[in-house]
């Protein structure tokens, strides 16, 4: 356990890099911007079929979450890139050999690193939701819009349910990123494959085999959040308990495969 804590502590200074902070900053700024655009459209009286649900939910306790949750796809994509690139960079930069000479028990090192990475991703997401939520609240109050339902106990419950499922979603996405990084051992290949899979491949297969793809990891991680607030994503067609079980199973599969492959790899980078 001590070596996992050491690995975790050794990761923390790496988050000071501009490249890491810039990605987290982009998540915050773009998500807030998307939330503001959504709010502005509703507040300025926009109409349309795709807006109908959001307009209906706007004055309810789900109103704020449905607005700040519009950037969820972006948050998932950025989290996936963050984890995949950060881990794969240890191979691409050649720094993995330094680390594994310091800590030859590879799984302990990987556990410490992933713990730090996942916490960083979750903190970035939490900060993004809190700042964009606060921003929308302030803007709404500035325009005289009634926000009491958003901050009511029911509003808070909706937010926490959304947050809990979003945490699980990002843990799953991070586990997927970890496996892709370990298998590709390259930032360019890892990020390319991760984004192509989550944004394109699952979508294409879904057109042909929708019954099958509902169990695919990207779909499962995405739809469990839609259960809490349907307006921020699709609901799981197989039902929440089944989707939750599938999500946990996928996370376990990614962790086990990583744990089997990584200690057996030759570090040639």
């Amino acid at each position: 356990m001590i070596s996992v804590i050491r690995a975790f502590r050794s990761e923390v200074p790496k988050f000071r890099r501009w490249s890491v902070l810039a990605v987290a900053g982009a998540m915050l700024v773009v998500s807030t911007f998307i939330a503001y655009l959504t709010f502005h459209q509703i507040a300025s009286g926009a109409t349309g079929r795709e807006m109908a649900g959001l307009i209906t939910a706007f004055p309810t306790p789900q109103g704020l979450v449905s607005i700040i949750g519009q950037a969820r796809s972006l948050i998932i994509a950025i989290a996936l890139v963050m984890v995949t690139a950060n881990l794969a960079a240890e191979w691409s930069q050649g720094t993995l050999r330094n680390l594994l000479v310091c800590e030859p028990r590879r799984l302990r090192w990987l556990a410490g690193k992933m713990l730090a990475l996942v916490l960083f991703v979750l903190l970035s997401m939490l900060l993004t939701l809190l700042i964009s939520g606060t921003f929308i609240l302030v803007v709404a109050q500035g325009q005289g819009i009634q926000t009491a339902a958003w901050t009511s106990p029911e509003g808070l419950r909706v937010f926490l349910a959304f947050l809990g499922n979003e945490v699980l979603c990002l843990v799953g996405v991070s586990a997927l990123g970890m496996l892709i990084a370990i298998l590709t051992r390259s930032v360019a290949a890892g990020v390319g494959i991760a984004l192509a899979y989550i944004l394109v491949v699952e979508g294409i297969i879904a057109v042909v085999l929708p019954q099958v793809t509902q169990w695919f990891p990207g779909r499962v991680f995405n739809t469990i959040v839609g259960t809490a607030v349907p307006l921020v994503g699709p609901e799981p067609p197989q039902g929440y308990p089944a989707a939750l079980g599938a999500a946990l199973l996928w996370i376990a599969v990614f962790v086990v495969v990583s744990a089997v492959v990584f200690p057996r790899q030759d570090v040639k980078a």
């Binding site: 050794s10 200074p13 501009w18």
Partner: peptide, 16 residues
Amino acid sequence: GLSGQTNLEVLARLGG
């Protein structure tokens, strides 16, 4: 992107 000092700190923390 990290300083020489921070690079060594990363490894010092990892190695205890």
